[in-house]
Write a protein that binds this DNA or RNA. Structure first.
Lengths: 349, 349
DNA sequence: ATGAGCCCTGGAACCGGTTCCAGATCCGGG
DNA sequence: CCCGGATCTGGAACCGGTTCCAGGGCTCAT
């Protein structure tokens, strides 16, 4: 209700002095500053943000785009961003942009152009050429989390290395029949690093000389998705692998549940490894590669703030390390189980 | 880059006419309107939002407050809100407000006062007296989703009735030893309707004359939380019930997994019912009461828009119906199993 | 004593739109 | 023919802040 003019009058100074006193820029004597602050507090003065942004060109808002919310990774990143922005008194404008959706087009064509935020954090976004063009036209700092290296600033784990470590872990336990589960080879539903994780798996298999037996089974990147695909995969003894590397913990957990349902004991008859260290990982004793998306969200904000403070500051590519957490879903290969393949009574096809 | 002045010049009209042509208010001849629009399109004109809000007092933004993101319900509501706002070209400002947190205080004390949004949607928030006061001081429309009836507009299921139906379903199957699982009796971690769900359970038990054997076991309202509490509850044959009603599907699923781990067959030896119809419900064959939080989010936006269009419009209290979806986690009580209580070898204590 | 330089303050311009108001034109009805 | 009302347009005020600029007082070195 009360504007800066009333505050100025109450403190017996001009608008300009009041503004200087409150923003802390320019010369103001200690005495006046205090009087103005007291007056502002007494009147419950809150600056009108639109007036401030109109003249300063800053909105004190950060935009966040993500393809989905119901995956653990995204929710965690978002919470991390929230925390970090709160500390800095920034607002957070959220935009959903599922791949190939009208919402996504809308976002890139219209909402970006409104420039309602000072910078953008793109989580799990692999922009098309057109989208990249819009991003550049946006003309404000962008930082990518867990996705394609949009412009410059980015934070993620090394997805390829993570998948390779996961696969190597299984190889080290003697597994040879290892399936990579989850995601979509043409990348339409694989929003973020899933594609690079698949590559990591493939390269590990290749290096182990198992190129021929590398197999990718696609599924929606969710727990029910992983479950459904795993039921099918594991249901047939002829195609059943001795180990699975899930592109993320959700599908890995889905696979574990599928195995239990089918009476296949984990880790005795089937090893499963994931990537994420999801909140459910502990409960299912899932061996996985840990990442802390909450921290990644915070880091993204940090990067963005550096860029905002100094547009010419150097940009950064941050890789979070992702240590292997060994729990109880992986074990040395059971030779009886693997022998089934190609040897059992049905092993002809 | 280009302001409305350039557009006006390009179209050969004044700023005011250009404004009228673009906003569609006031008299403008069809010809001029078209010329202005063409000029705007040619220049790629996008109005500066802060200038618009400064003069109109509207921000074209809706605020959303929720205590958490990683529960399915909240993520779904948020996606529903996103969808509905996108259609109306509104922005969405997101604020996290975990119960009892500094972030929550910050939100109510500072962020509300900035009035950066035209209206607020509070999801799963049970405001304290002080918070309610701030909400009123905010002076803009508020709608509550799945929580306390903040002011006026609200949308949710009838939590109490839902829990009663769930409990009655079990009673109808002959169960007598029914435990209500999840939440926190003092309500500190029970953000939304969990408290009322507990009441619904209790009243159903009371009406069945089972007041004495009504039991509530608290747990974090997550799948691992439900799992942990259920492992403990079910691990002891003496205290093991024949049925569980989970305050939401997450804890119900946690209980099912705990039962499987302990070798207790569902539904033969243990019936479990949840509330939500979570994305995982189908995969676990969980009998549950269905609600569609995505729709609730959309409805909340609808309510808010009515209020924004006409501040004097009547307010609404929307109850979504929550039909019982019977799957395969509930079955008639197994008399052998229930007989264990108080009769088995360990049934003395 | 004088000018340079720092500290402090107020007036006015400005950010980029919308809206009020006054004036001009055109229409149909009395 | 004249007048009232509807249609159309431009100039100017306004929303609520920040910032530029000019001016006055002060200190300090020349």
């Amino acid at each position: 209700m009360a504007g800066i003019a009333e505050v100025a009058r109450a403190a017996g100074v001009s608008k300009s002095t009041a503004s200087r006193a409150l923003t802390g820029s320019g010369y103001v004597s200690a005495g006046t500053r205090q009087r103005v602050r007291d007056a502002a507090a007494a009147l419950g003065y809150v600056p009108t943000t639109s007036a401030v942004s109109l003249v300063t060109g800053r909105t004190q808002t950060v935009g966040v785009v993500m393809p989905s919310l119901d995956r653990w990774f995204f929710a965690q990143v978002l919470e991390g961003i929230q925390d970090a922005l709160l500390e800095r008194r920034y607002d957070l404008a959220l935009y959903g942009a599922p791949p190939e959706s009208a919402a996504r087009r809308e976002m890139f064509e219209h909402f970006l152009a409104r420039k309602r935020f000072d910078g953008l954090i793109a989580v799990g976004i692999e922009p098309s050429a057109r989208e990249l063009e819009r991003l550049v036209a946006f003309g404000k700092p962008v930082v990518a989390v867990g996705g394609y290296d949009v412009g410059t600033n980015a934070v993620s784990i090394d997805d390829q290395a993570a998948a390779r470590i996961a696969t190597d872990h299984l190889l080290g336990l003697g597994h040879r029949e290892i399936v990579c589960l989850g995601g979509d080879p043409d990348g339409r539903h694989t929003s973020f690093g899933d594609g690079r994780r698949l590559e990591g798996y493939l390269s590990a298999m290749r290096e182990a000389g198992l190129e021929a037996s590398a197999r990718h089974v696609q599924s929606e990147v969710t727990m029910p998705g992983g479950y459904g695909a795993a039921v099918e995969l594991l249901g047939d003894r002829r195609t059943r692998p001795t180990a699975i590397v899930g592109v993320c913990d959700e599908v890995a957990v889905g696979a574990i549940i599928a195995a239990r349902r089918l009476g296949i004991r984990v880790p005795e008859r089937l090893s499963v490894v994931g990537i994420d260290d999801h909140a459910y990982a502990d409960m299912f004793s899932l061996t996985t590669l840990q990442q802390r998306p909450h921290q990644q969200g915070r880091a993204a904000v940090q990067l963005l703030m550096w860029q905002l403070d100094d547009p010419d500051a150097p940009t950064h590519r941050l890789y979070e390390s992702s240590p292997l957490v060994v729990r109880n879903s992986t074990a040395p290969v059971d030779d009886d189980a693997s022998a089934v393949i190609g040897v059992g009574p049905l092993g002809t096809a």
